[in-house]
């Protein structure tokens, strides 16, 4: 029995491990770089800090461009997966014949099973060049690594996630409400838009938050398709960088472990952890409260 209890506590140990390692290294980082510089700084160029004389050079570790880049890409991704996932769930749940649903649903879910490195490759090799070329055709300058390419592909990746959560939320709406709407002479789409979706909204919103936390923490697609330039921009056609990309870049070179460059990765990781955790906790609360409403 003691063994069983010990096994169960591994989950807690993992969390503690994550929190401790992140916090411990982050504290070291903030000893060298002021917290406010990190959180409010507008410039991110950790490369300059490699040289001894420039350690902690002011402004080199401002995380704002990374945050903006992350938000930009996440927003693009959610703009794709939100509507598409929701509408796909509606079609499969309300319109599709059984056979169509039985064949198509697993195929769509396969999208979630594809390793992210494959999406990254696809974004870099196919989507980004395609965007650049079509941008050129209409006289728009799209850089070869763009927020748009990464965001679009990430959005596609999260379609099954959003649609399965929307599906749950929609099926949780009591059948009697749908019948009431149809009985009053609503067309199906009117019943869906006017009654079912508003009733399912909290569940869907919770699901979107979960999707957001996924997208924010996604790494490979952005590493391969979004670029490294820490530019402070909201232009989706430009290359931007994200928190996860910088963590990877900072930690995949060879460097001593306690240089601010390495430690910065942990500060970024801590930020990522806190944000995604907050999103998750909120989302799970919303979804839970929503389920209870109809039980």
């Amino acid at each position: 029995m003691a063994v069983l209890i010990a096994a169960s506590s591994v989950a807690i140990l993992t969390t503690v491990g994550i929190v401790l390692s992140l916090i411990f290294e982050s504290i070291q980082f903030f000893r060298q770089i002021p917290f406010t510089d990190f959180v409010f700084g507008l410039h991110w160029s950790p490369q300059t800090a490699i040289r001894e004389d420039q350690v902690g050079a002011s402004g080199a570790f401002g995380a704002i461009p990374l945050l903006v880049g992350t938000l930009l890409i996440s927003a693009i991704a959610l703009c794709v997966s939100g509507p598409v996932g929701l509408m796909a769930a509606i079609y499969l749940g309300e319109y599709a014949s059984r056979r169509f649903r039985a064949t198509v649903k697993p195929i769509l879910e396969a999208l979630a099973g594809i390793p992210t490195v494959v999406y990254g490759f696809f974004a870099a090799i196919v989507v980004a060049p395609m965007l650049r070329n079509s941008g050129e055709a209409i006289g728009l300058e799209v850089s070869s690594e763009s927020a748009l390419a990464a965001g679009l592909v990430m959005g596609i990746m999260t379609i099954p996630f959003v649609s399965s959560i929307s599906d749950d939320a929609i099926t949780a709406v009591p059948e009697s409400l749908k019948e009431a709407a149809l009985g009053l002479g609503s067309t199906r789409s009117e019943a869906i838009r006017n009654v079912i979706l508003p009733a399912a909204l909290p569940g869907i919103a919770g699901g979107l938050l979960l999707a957001a936390s996924r997208v924010i923490g996604e790494t490979m697609i952005v590493v391969m398709a979004a670029g490294l330039a820490a530019k402070l921009t909201l232009n989706p056609f430009e290359a931007v960088t994200t928190v996860t990309v910088q963590i990877v870049t900072l930690l995949t070179g060879d460097q001593e472990f306690d240089s601010p460059k390495t430690l910065a990765a942990f500060a970024l990781g801590l930020m990522l952890f806190v944000v995604t955790l907050a999103l998750n906790v909120t989302a799970l609360r919303i979804v839970k409260a929503y389920r209870e409403q109809y039980d």
Binding site: S176, L177, E179, A181, G183, N194
Partner: peptide, 29 residues
């Protein structure tokens, strides 16, 4: 057809909307 033949169900099933909007639902759509 369903505007000519209305239906009331076993379990009261008002929409999660205001009283006014519930009654106004049919006329509106």
């Amino acid at each position: 057809l369903r505007t000519r033949i209305g239906m009331v169900f076993q379990k009261p099933n008002p929409f999660p909307k205001s009283i006014f909007d519930n009654v106004a639902y049919g006329p509106r759509i």
